[in-house]
Simulated scan of single mutants.
Amino acid sequence: MIDGVQVKKLRVIPDERGRLMEILRADDGMFKGFGQVYMTTAYPGVVKGWHYHKKQYDNMAVVKGMMKIVLYDSRENSPTRGEVNVFFAGEYNPVLLHIPPFVYHGFKCVSTEEAIVINTPTEVYNYGEPDEFRVHPHNNDIPYNWDREDG
């Protein structure tokens, strides 16, 4: 696992009225602070990536559909430099991914319906000077191919 990345298995509590799932709590060991909460989606087969942050930690949970979330560690002094992690997150695997600064990340919707991600980053989005640094999803130096792997 990439140094600093944490995975929290989320507990779904269903009853006859519906279900409840806690995602991130202030008493979780991975909680570093609160910036904002936002939702983003992807349509089936769409890749959103790659990007990283210099200050912000992301805390991502897929609450509808399924996503393949991929992380790449390009940090110079990291013991896991060059490592790629792949996570399948969503309705069939409810997890929270804690992603540290300088770790590239992206996701691809692998369900047959639009997938919804809830992110609770540690920083407020700064529209004038975003802490977001992007590279092309396919044409880059990251050793990962977004194609589906059958086998």
Results as ranks from 00 to 15, higher is better:
60 M>E: 05
74 S>F: 11
98 H>E: 04
132 E>V: 12
103 V>C: 01
63 V>E: 01
66 M>A: 06
104 Y>E: 04
100 P>S: 05
64 K>Q: 14
64 K>Y: 13
56 Q>P: 01
130 P>G: 07
70 V>K: 00
121 P>R: 07
114 E>A: 13
132 E>Q: 15
53 H>I: 05
130 P>W: 10
53 H>L: 07
128 G>P: 14
54 K>G: 00
71 L>E: 03
110 V>M: 08
97 L>M: 09
127 Y>G: 14
95 V>Y: 02
104 Y>C: 01
115 A>W: 07
129 E>Y: 13
133 F>H: 11
105 H>C: 11
94 P>H: 03
127 Y>T: 11
67 M>E: 08
84 V>C: 08
64 K>D: 10
63 V>Q: 00
124 V>S: 06
128 G>W: 11
99 I>A: 01
85 N>D: 13
129 E>L: 11
80 T>R: 08
126 N>M: 09
118 I>E: 03
73 D>W: 14
66 M>P: 05
114 E>R: 15
69 I>K: 05
127 Y>S: 15
117 V>T: 15
65 G>D: 02
102 F>G: 08
105 H>K: 13
133 F>Y: 15
125 Y>V: 13
94 P>L: 10
53 H>Q: 05
82 G>D: 06
94 P>S: 07
122 T>A: 03
101 P>D: 03
106 G>T: 00
133 F>P: 02
100 P>M: 06
118 I>L: 10
72 Y>V: 06
87 F>E: 01
116 I>M: 12
126 N>G: 04
119 N>D: 09
105 H>T: 01
56 Q>E: 09
134 R>Q: 10
73 D>N: 05
106 G>D: 02
85 N>E: 14
80 T>W: 02
106 G>A: 06
69 I>Q: 02
112 T>W: 11
87 F>H: 03
60 M>Y: 03
95 V>N: 03
79 P>L: 12
96 L>P: 00
107 F>C: 02
118 I>G: 02
131 D>Y: 10
120 T>W: 06
109 C>N: 06
61 A>W: 01
78 S>Y: 13
89 A>D: 01
112 T>P: 14
122 T>P: 04
122 T>L: 06
69 I>F: 04
98 H>N: 13
51 H>D: 01
90 G>S: 04
114 E>C: 10
120 T>D: 05
119 N>V: 07
122 T>C: 03
68 K>R: 15
70 V>D: 00
114 E>F: 10
122 T>D: 00
80 T>S: 09
55 K>R: 14
93 N>L: 08
131 D>I: 11
99 I>V: 11
105 H>L: 15
50 W>C: 07
92 Y>S: 15
82 G>Q: 09
68 K>S: 09
117 V>D: 12
58 D>K: 09
99 I>F: 04
127 Y>Q: 15
76 E>N: 13
60 M>F: 10
94 P>K: 06
70 V>N: 00
120 T>Q: 09
121 P>E: 02
98 H>Q: 05
125 Y>K: 07
111 S>N: 04
130 P>S: 12
101 P>A: 01
96 L>K: 07
94 P>C: 10
61 A>M: 08
121 P>C: 08
118 I>V: 12
63 V>L: 05
107 F>Y: 14
126 N>A: 07
91 E>D: 09
